[in-house]
């Protein structure tokens, strides 16, 4: 289904996942980890902001749009673009909202294959399969 396994082609790209739906967050973490990504999962925009402010480095922000707290996904993405320009951004949403700026958006629901494709497409080219 998802193509490669972590053993055959490790991808060490680090993903910061922000998603407020607990079960979905857990499953996404499992899916992405199984694919060989390093994942830091947080439960809203404010937490994501906090870990980045505390110096954590990540290659990609993968964030839900509608989340409680001071920063929703879109605001978080704008903050990241401004303060961490090297970081790639992918948003996801289950709503039909159109105001997503020029960020790539993954529409829920999606299959594991669609998830991995979208993540790969969003990651900056050098870090895809850069496995050392």
């Amino acid at each position: 289904m998802t193509g490669s396994s972590s053993a055959s082609r490790p991808e060490r790209a680090h993903i910061l996942l922000a998603e407020d739906h607990t079960m979905l967050r857990g499953f996404l973490e499992m899916s992405l980890t199984a694919e060989g990504f390093r994942v830091t999962a947080v439960k809203n925009g404010d937490e994501a902001h906090a870990v980045l402010e505390n110096g954590m480095q990540a290659d990609l922000l993968f964030s839900d749009i509608r989340m409680a707290g001071a920063l929703d996904g879109l605001q978080l993405a704008c903050w990241v673009r401004k303060h961490r320009p090297a970081m790639a951004i992918l948003l996801q949403t289950g709503f039909t909202e159109l105001l997503t700026g020029d960020f790539p958006v993954l529409r829920k629901p999606y299959s594991p294959a669609e998830l991995i494709d979208a993540i790969r497409a969003a990651l900056p080219k050098p870090s895809v399969g850069c496995a050392r």
Binding site: T2, F27, S31, P109, Y110, S111, P112
Partner: peptide, 23 residues
């Protein structure tokens, strides 16, 4: 549309789970 949004979250969980299960 609001209800559909909530279902979309649940459906994504199921799809991810089934995908992992299949592997």
């Amino acid at each position: 549309a609001g209800i559909a949004h909530e279902f979309n979250n649940q459906l994504t969980v199921m799809q991810q789970g089934l995908g992992m299960l299949a592997n």
